[in-house]
Design a protein around this nucleic acid. Sequence first.
DNA 1: GGTTAGCACTCGAAGCAATAGAGTGCTAAA
DNA 2: TTTAGCACTCTATTGCTTCGAGTGCTAACC
Lengths: 362, 362
Amino acid sequence: MADDKRELSERKKQILKAIVDAHIEGGGPVGSKAILAAGGMNCSSATIRNEMAELEEMGYLEQPHASAGRVPSELGYRFYVDALIERYAMTTHEIAQINNLLRAKMGELDQILTAASHLASNLTNYTGIAIRPRAGSASISKFEGIYLEPDHFILVAVAASGAVQTKHIHTEFGIRPEAVARLTESLNAMLAGLPAEKITLPIIMELETRMGPDSGMVGLVMKVVYDLLSELDAGAMQVSGVDHLLQYPEYSDTAQFRELLGTLEKKDDILDLVSISDGEGDINVLIGSESRVKVMNNSALVFKPIVKDGKTLGAIGVLGPRRMDYAKVLATLEGLSGNIENLIQPNKQLHEGGTPDGTSGG
Amino acid sequence: MADDKRELSERKKQILKAIVDAHIEGGGPVGSKAILAAGGMNCSSATIRNEMAELEEMGYLEQPHASAGRVPSELGYRFYVDALIERYAMTTHEIAQINNLLRAKMGELDQILTAASHLASNLTNYTGIAIRPRAGSASISKFEGIYLEPDHFILVAVAASGAVQTKHIHTEFGIRPEAVARLTESLNAMLAGLPAEKITLPIIMELETRMGPDSGMVGLVMKVVYDLLSELDAGAMQVSGVDHLLQYPEYSDTAQFRELLGTLEKKDDILDLVSISDGEGDINVLIGSESRVKVMNNSALVFKPIVKDGKTLGAIGVLGPRRMDYAKVLATLEGLSGNIENLIQPNKQLHEGGTPDGTSGG
DNA sequence: GGTTAGCACTCGAAGCAATAGAGTGCTAAA
DNA sequence: TTTAGCACTCTATTGCTTCGAGTGCTAACC
């Protein structure tokens, strides 16, 4: 698509990189003298000006107004991220933070992702996002009813992905513990592994037959099962650290920031974005209008799916200004996702360190 | 405390109410002529000026600067909320919205509260808050283990409050389904109803004895139980609709708004505030510095605990500018909490309407 | 004594011109 | 091809003026 563009000379790359770096650092437009001052150049500011004019013509830079410096365009960022970025080396402190905080959170994937999103936000100073993507058609691999009172029990559903959800069920008539046990057994026998659209009337009828005298509760239970499946299908998203964004001048326009907040609360757009991502566990970088979400024109979204056994279980990401510190963000997400995948596949290699922090729980 | 203040004359009350109303409406300082224009006064602006000067002296009003109108002080708002407020009548549309949206959300209290917080935010145009307060010392009333794979099962814990939490447990050695069943039984027998500090070493030893050959898993399980109890103790809070706040000029100062966002994300301060509230199910109105949370000096927090059988299970609230529309907020929270309490005590009076909206879940 | 009209005064908001400064593009020389 | 120099452009800032809303005070009024 953008292939007939002539190659960038080594010096152009150097200048483009210097501009992006300086812009990420400072936020404002970058002038020719500033680049010279940053060092690494052995030519004059006039030469840099000429190169910048060409880079602008080629579409990598933009000029906010005639007498300002240059700002990287979307294409400029894209080139930077794809070709110019320097690997950021995490400090041992940052690595330790990831290790400690995530290690403490064994168990629920949702909780791990939430913790990871907080970490991502704090380590990068942007907004962290944790996502459980929409499932195409989720199914429940295991049911369990828990009897509480004669008119009250809980239905626990474990999804294939490992997500667990529970629902209270109140009945208007009494039920015995044995009925709940039979329900558990029947649901597992009849409905385990079935997505909503494969649960047909004959199956429900069979379920009623199995429940015998307690068939009255089947209707209620089916509604709950439907709700559970819907919620699993729907995906979920968790945002942390929006307040960080306000430190960047690009979000000082409250009207626009408000729209962004609204988008984050609606969740749909971003869930779509991530759910449609290209399957593999690679990091995705969406810059500005690449993301199709209108409101994010000045922002960038970087996210990494969490994959286990070839299935995408979730994603963690970072949302920030278009001029975000991509090197650091990429490194952070890589680090986090590595740890998360270790955590959810504990058999693989858990004992590599033996961290001796005795959290004696009792 | 503020009792030696001489009583406010009828006219002073009228003027104070007019000022607060106008300030809530418009946001800016209110002048004597504006009050006259609003109607209801049969005196001149000069008289109103005199009264306003006295009200200011008495502490009910403040003047941003010498030549501006008056603004209600914290004391002024307090008096307004306590004595002057007019009951807001919800529209049938608003009532219908509450009914429909909450009816659909049977089940988990957390989910109901989340839905309620969204509703509160949307109906009032401020920020909605849903809270599960810190429990003094939570206990688990029912355990249930769910066997999944030879090295993997789930522990479900039902708290006395009805909250349900789950944890995945991975073991490094195989366990049989029967071991999980025995674990369920033993946990219920030994630990049900005990807060963390009553779980002593002898109890844990007895647990190990009961588990016999599978006693190896007890250590792991105890850590999980401790985590579960900690999470129940910790409380939870859910915020929705922060973006609404940005429409009010008092939050256009991004630095301050950012601090407020930070407070909302930390959750501790607000959880404290609500958890310490005075036990009863009454609506609490905290205006400005009354709330002790420094950052909220320009804001007000209104919340209502959700009480069942004399126990506070949660709370819903609204956070907004100090000049929020208290009448509407109070009415909305009353309406919501009424519906919620109906939902979580379904035996009481569920069938009063028989809403015929056939959500055929199949 | 409370109420009202009138008036001088205050102070912030808005508009406007002048200034400073950063950065460019162009031209001519090296 | 690079560089130095210079004119030009555009924004941000500053100081100044004007405008108007609103007050407090005084004197007259009922």
